[in-house]
Amino acid sequence: MYSAHDSRIAVVGAGLGGLACARVLQLHGRSVTVFEGEASVDARPQGGTLDMHADTGQIALRAAGLHGRFRTLSRPEGQEWRLLDTATAALLPDQGPADDEGADDRPEIDRGQLRGLLLESLTAGTVRWGRAVSGVTPLGDGTCRLLFSDGTAEDFDLVVGADGAWSRVRPALSDATPGYTGVTFVEAGFDDCDTRHAGLARMVGDGTMLAKAGGKALFAQRNSNGHIRAYIAFRAPENWHVAAGLDLDDATAVRTHLLKIFDGWHESLLHLLRDSDSGFVNRPLYALPVPHIWEHTPGVTLLGDAAHLMPPLGLGANLAMLDGTDLAHALVTEPTLDDGVRAYESVMLPRSAEAAKGCAEGLGHLLPPTDS
């Protein structure tokens, strides 16, 4: 078995967890290649704002030597949390994240900014863009063959699957696939909010606004550059739009349907449905079984959503980054790569199972099943 000093390590996926892993490996003088199917860093929008927890994401950023730079980019004011009454839009007593386990220090940062910070920290050429992976084959000698969508292949001493919910690496370890949670988020966006949507901007404030009742919720988050990202959340069949006869590209029809679902809610809250600057993006929520575990296989492991996809309640990005830095640290401190992976999995698997259980329960509290 190779040591980390003379090993060939591949990370599949240039998301936050994979990049954090690569960064820490390079800090310790180790060689690593990140393969990403997207053609370039700006091939698609990177999503909304993230709160970096003191006990997870910020630990990872310190391990990566990037905590100071993160603090200059982050928005501490984004921790503000507002809960509103659905009928009156009046402010209710705070029922936001509990003030424990470092929850009082969760500054916000746009996902794209955080990803850019990690990318800029890597040696030039670390990320191979436009290299989509189709699968991984363990070779039985502790190494793995990485198969690419263009028909080529490369062998590595360790392949790290950091390729998200629909991981192409996961099948080398597990037959599990994500299942629909019964909850869908529909995303909408608002630009130049303080000028063009001043009422909404005042209602949302500097952080997150939530209104919920009857298995439905509206919430909105302040992003940087005057942008607010809103989510319309409800329980429905996975293909709810098909049953409703909706074309998701027909924003007018989707808006009309959603307004019926939220009939009776206060008009200021319905601004999130009526007046978005973007169309609507359907985001059904999926999760892996809890716990998601696998038999250790030399030469391959998983991190982030590939390992423990869970409802997006503020933990996923934090855990992915902690996974990445924990794995890298184990690889550079244990005698062999396999020892490092075993040490990492012994910590990550129980930690992620506990977090996934909590997120599943949290989703149930946020949007209780209508028959409960």
Rank of each mutant, 00 (worst) to 15 (best):
E361I: 09
A343S: 13
H292R: 09
L303K: 01
H292P: 02
W81C: 04
K260R: 14
L158A: 03
N225C: 13
L218G: 03
G48L: 05
D305E: 08
E238V: 08
P298K: 01
R71Y: 10
G226P: 06
H308C: 07
D305P: 04
T181H: 00
T152A: 13
P368G: 11
L84F: 09
L210A: 03
G279W: 04
C21H: 08
T256R: 11
A233L: 02
A39F: 13
E36K: 09
V183L: 04
R145Q: 11
L200S: 01
G135H: 10
A64R: 07
A90R: 14
D338R: 02
E354K: 14
L327N: 02
A60D: 02
R202Q: 13
L27K: 08
S278E: 03
V300Y: 00
G299L: 03
P171K: 09
A353Y: 06
G140K: 05
G214P: 06
T86D: 08
R222H: 03
A64L: 06
G112C: 07
D305T: 06
D250H: 05
Q26E: 13
D51P: 02
T56M: 08
S74C: 15
D85M: 02
D247V: 06
S149G: 13
L118M: 15
T325F: 08
G78A: 15
P93Y: 08
R170I: 06
D275H: 11
F280L: 08
L83D: 10
G164H: 04
P237V: 01
D275M: 10
G47L: 05
T177M: 13
T195P: 03
L92E: 14
G65S: 04
L173S: 05
T256H: 06
H5G: 12
R111Y: 02
D277Y: 04
L272R: 06
E238I: 01
R44E: 00
G199F: 10
S3V: 06
T72F: 10
D194T: 15
L259I: 07
G142I: 12
Q46R: 15
E36Q: 03
R82I: 06
G161A: 10
L273I: 13
L366I: 10
L366W: 10
S40A: 15
R115D: 02
L367Y: 09
L288N: 01
